[in-house]
Amino acid sequence: MKKLLSVLTLSLGVAFTASAGVVIIGNNAAGDMSAADVKKAFLGKGDSSLVVYELDEGNSTRSEFHSTVTGKSDAQLKAFWSKQVFTGKGNPPATVASATAMKAAVASNPSAIGYIDEADIDGTVKVILKP
């Protein structure tokens, strides 16, 4: 029993340290944004000139981002976008499959924003907000 508890404790420690935290990224030419502006953008209520990218559903970074920034769970987010689409008020952001794809999409468009784990940051994109 003691051995099992030690293994579980170590496993949880690894799970929590694997993620450095979510950061919002933009093209290197992008300026900083407030948390309120980012929330609006990812809920389709912000600056219409922004191109917003999301990670695919089921991605843990996506869940962490929305929990922290928009205050919505995966289920709430899905319900929100279903209602927006049904009522004709908006469509969800385009999705990408990975942090690498997110960086490529954001780096190629000066009007694009997205989010990735802070551990995935490199020189191709600029951190515009750390929530």
Rank of each mutant, 00 (worst) to 15 (best):
T17K: 10
F65H: 07
I113R: 02
K103F: 00
A105M: 05
A79K: 13
F65C: 04
G123A: 14
A112R: 06
A30S: 15
F42M: 11
V85P: 01
G123C: 03
N109Y: 05
G90R: 05
N28K: 15
E64P: 00
L55S: 02
I113H: 02
G58V: 09
K2E: 13
F86Y: 11
G26E: 02
L55W: 04
G123N: 14
S6P: 00
T68A: 14
K3N: 12
S73N: 09
V127F: 00
S63N: 14
A107N: 03
E118T: 01
A119R: 13
M1E: 11
E54P: 01
K130E: 10
T17M: 12
F16E: 03
G123P: 05
S98V: 02
D32Y: 04
S11G: 13
A105Q: 04
S63K: 13
G71R: 01
K89S: 13
V127S: 11
A119I: 13
G123T: 08
A107D: 00
S48M: 08
T9R: 08
D32K: 13
V23M: 06
T17R: 03
A41Q: 09
D47N: 15
S108W: 04
G26D: 02
L129C: 04
K40I: 05
D56K: 14
W81Y: 08
I25L: 06
V7E: 12
I128A: 06
K130D: 11
K39Q: 13
D56A: 14
E64H: 04
P131L: 01
A79T: 13
N59L: 03
L5D: 11
N28S: 08
A94K: 14
A75R: 11
S82D: 13
L50P: 06
E64C: 00
L50R: 14
L8T: 10
K45Y: 03
L77P: 01
G114C: 03
A119L: 09
I128V: 15
F65L: 09
D122H: 07
T9L: 15
A104W: 01
D122N: 15
E118Q: 15
L55M: 07
P110Y: 03
A18M: 13
A35L: 12
V106T: 02
A112K: 05
M102Q: 00
V106N: 01
A36D: 13
T9W: 08
L4R: 09
D117S: 09
D56L: 10
A94C: 04
D120Q: 14
V23P: 00
F16Y: 11
D120G: 00
V52H: 03
P92G: 08
G123K: 12
L5P: 02
L8C: 15
A41I: 04
A18R: 06
N109K: 10
D117R: 05
T87R: 04
S67P: 02
P131F: 10
V51M: 06
A119N: 11
L55G: 03
A29F: 07
D37L: 01
K40C: 03
A29M: 12
A99R: 03
K78V: 11
